[in-house]
């Protein structure tokens, strides 16, 4: 199978590989997929007090398209508000990377990773809010 130039570029020079402190209340961690299915993505996003994504990191076990999808997502989310990030859909990734039909699941996984990371942040913030009220 031939990979698109953009997939190859992200695969060979992945952006924002790494780990953020998962215990930081401003960091949301989303881990999706399963080893049995051949791909696991961990996406982490960090927001400032205004809810704007200031940093994003990923690590992915999976095929080249899965790695490229998650690398691309870290670029897409930076500078966006949570509400804007929620608007990112898997087809945006498919188009940007020119993924073939058999690799669409990689983009779906990336969208799931975004949603999971946002859910994590929201849960943390709700907990903090509750703690503040209780305090």
């Amino acid at each position: 199978m031939a990979y698109s130039d953009k997939v190859l570029d992200h695969y060979e020079n992945p952006r924002n590989v790494g780990v953020l402190d998962k215990d930081d209340p401003n960091v949301g961690t989303g881990m999706v997929g399963a080893p049995a299915c051949g791909d696991v993505m961990r996406l982490q996003i960090k927001v400032d007090d205004d809810g704007v994504v200031v940093d994003a990191k990923f690590k992915t076990y999976g095929c080249g398209s899965a790695i490229a999808s998650s690398s691309l997502v870290t670029e897409m989310v930076k500078g966006k508000t949570i509400a804007e990030v929620e608007q990112i859909k898997n087809m945006d990734i498919v188009e940007e990377l020119a993924l073939p039909p058999v690799k669409i699941h990689c983009s779906v996984l990336a969208e799931d990773a975004i949603a999971a990371a946002i859910a994590d942040i929201k849960a943390k913030q709700a907990e903090q809010g509750a703690a503040a009220e209780a305090g």
Binding site: V17, Y61, I67
Partner: peptide
């Protein structure tokens, strides 16, 4: 492996 979350977990002693 530097890119792999599973490798991180393995190194942290987590049984997958």
């Amino acid at each position: 492996r530097d890119l792999s979350p599973l490798w991180d977990m393995h190194k942290d002693g987590i049984d997958l």
